[in-house]
Design a protein around this nucleic acid. Structure first.
Lengths: 182, 182
DNA sequence: CATATAGTTCAAGGCGTTTTGAACTGCATG
DNA sequence: CATGCAGTTCAAAACGCCTTGAACTATATG
């Protein structure tokens, strides 16, 4: 597994009780991220790590967010794969610690780019294909072909919205440099 | 129930077998619409009616799309409520017929406007609230407040994408006038 | 190497949503 | 007003997705 030795271990005393504003923010992030087709708890784990600006152990995450051992393991695996959470080793400690790496928007962008975008592209291709078949069929009225064309507008609008999301998220590069400061 | 008397009853002979291109297009529409959080079959029913440009009975829809009686009833109710399907009565026929009314984009727009938009707005409000609470708390570091602010970017990007979708869909007014031609 | 602790895996369970189908309602017609 | 068909309703089943937890693996430490 990747992960680098000892990132500075948290702000020493991790106060383990969630303040009110913290859980509010954590849940909010979970909700937006769910909107984009990710798991709510993926967003929550990331948000916890990001807000604390500290490296936490799996056990801590488990306790703070009331998740199961196995669940935390899988959630972290996903976040690591997307590059938004980093696994670090702390010297006098047998266990891994995790910290938020980049902005969550980057993860959303990356995944939407490769997964949703091509999903919509596929749909558009299907509609285009259907139209071609219809055009070749003499029994199909020109009006119907026109309607097929209009249907593509739904897919196009969707694609456009995704595009804006991606573009917007790309503007937020702030997160990229933070890791060098801490 | 609403619905108006005898819209011209279909193109006489409704060829009851789906051509290949037709089911392809129907499924494609079902898929995009599902992306926006509607039911796949809501999209499919609308697409069938729209493509045929004819008024079909519930029984016909049931057969064409392989849905259950009860299912068709409920799907149509939804589509009617959203104003994208119209219920019409044909003189020599004891049953209702249904036809596609406006562009599906309008339905998506309407529902997203009232449901998704406020959902995201609520999330943004939560984040703003969390930040306010954090700012009032002396123990919270300014850095953390800054991170809370950054989190709002995720919600903002989402809101922006929805906005674009809404704007785009509003441009397509073509559907509005068609009903007067048929 | 033995032991303890952290982390992973995955079948089973839980949960929310969608679909089915059978009973029911309502309406038109003779 | 009896009959039959169209349409509606809703409890139960089916389905898909997410989470749990117990067994298992890996790793550190004495």
């Amino acid at each position: 597994m990747k992960g680098y030795l000892w990132a500075p271990s948290a702000a020493t005393s991790v106060k383990t009780a969630q303040s009110n504003w913290e859980s509010m923010a954590i849940d909010a992030v979970g909700n937006v991220i769910e909107f984009w087709g990710f798991k709510r708890n993926q967003g929550r784990v990331w948000a916890l790590l990001y807000l604390r600006d500290a490296s936490l152990t799996a056990a801590e995450i488990e306790k703070e967010l009331e998740l199961s051992k196995g669940g935390v393991s899988m959630l972290i695996r996903d976040l690591e794969r997307w590059g938004v959470v980093l696994r670090v080793r702390v010297p006098g400690d047998g266990s891994w610690r995790y910290r938020a790496e980049t902005d969550l928007l980057q993860m959303a962008r990356r995944v939407i780019e490769e997964r949703e975008f091509s999903f919509i592209a596929r749909i558009r291709a299907d509609l285009a294909e259907a139209r071609k078949l219809a055009e070749a069929d003499a029994r199909v009225l020109p009006e119907q072909v026109e309607r097929l064309r209009k249907m593509e507008a739904v897919a196009e609008a969707t694609e456009k919205a995704l595009g804006v999301f991606l573009k917007t998220s790309r503007l937020d590069v702030g997160g990229m440099f933070e890791r060098f400061r801490a």
